[in-house]
Amino acid sequence: MNLRFSLNGEQTALDVSPWRRLLDVLREDLALTGTKEGCGEGECGACTVLVDGEAVCSCLVAAGQVEGREVRTVEGLGDGAVARAVREELVSFGGTQCGICTPGIAVCAVRALEREPDASRDRLRELLAGNICRCTGYQLIVDALECAAARGRGEGAE
């Protein structure tokens, strides 16, 4: 099909089978390899992207499902206050180690903090529960996102 959708803010059209996984279309056809595959069954969250603002596992989405929708990947999170804070604090707090889960966590965290800027540590753990990290034990990611949330609320130093 001739698939048309908004990708990271730009109208995109390409000829693909509607049954291919969105993950593969992003990675193979559009060279957006920031979205990672960890399990291929919606369990690990490494392939998380935003479709119309909702965090989804792109390995479980058929390309045809995003027709006319807005898709945002880690490459398109932009430089808004929350996105910047999430990226910077993940690095400074040691919230990324091997880094393969990091793009999915960044995508999910930006969405979470934009919607719930006051999220507590426990709430952050719930909101991120679909993203598995095997390196950190999660502590430093939660620390980073707590700090990013404070910055997003204008409490931290920019």
Binding site: R27, L32, T33, G34, T35, K36, E37, T73, V74, E75, V86, R87, L90, V91, S92, G94, T96, G99, I100, T102, P103, A106
Partner: peptide, 21 residues
Amino acid sequence: VSIPRVDGRAKVRGRALYVDD
């Protein structure tokens, strides 16, 4: 001293290239 990881920026932006990339 806990300097920012040298590979951190590329990883949070999804620019680090793993074998499948």
